[in-house]
Amino acid sequence: MTKEEQKLKLQEQFPSAIFDDAGQWLAINVAVADWLTTAQTLRAAGFDYLFCLTCVDYKTHLTMVYHMESTSERTPLVVKVQLDRNKPEIETVSHIWRTAEFHEREVYELFGVNFLNHPDLRLLILPDGWEGRNPLRKDFEDPVNMIKL
């Protein structure tokens, strides 16, 4: 399936989403309130493999980035959800794609995004008792270990 065909198909299903086909793969921007239903619709439409889940700190807001594809058609799709940087909250998708459970825990501690209804939202990489500061945010600076060139 080409990018254009994919776009036409998805436009019918998600009329409110904003499409961006400038990049390598088709990207859609979804409002945070629509994310859970979008994820469920996409999973039902065959997107069964979530191969990358991450977050980007744009200083004014955080953006969750989900890369997914269908194992039968292999046309990757990027879904982006913009979050409020001061109170980032989004519904978990760990019950839809099980791989999200670990990836969301990683994003939770490194970016401070709160995943609602996540089954086990605890620190994964950071040591126990780590509080507040989220290392991958742009304003985080470690005075001891930071590499600056």
């Binding site: 994964l124 990489i125 950071l126 290392p135 991958l136 985080f140 930071m146 590499i147 600056k148 060139l149």
Partner: peptide
């Protein structure tokens, strides 16, 4: 339980050039 050898390579890369 992870993180015993976490070096935060992703953060490190943000201050390295595209060659480094």
């Amino acid at each position: 339980h992870l993180g015993y050898i976490h070096r935060s390579i992703e953060k490190m890369c943000e201050s390295l050039s595209f060659r480094q």
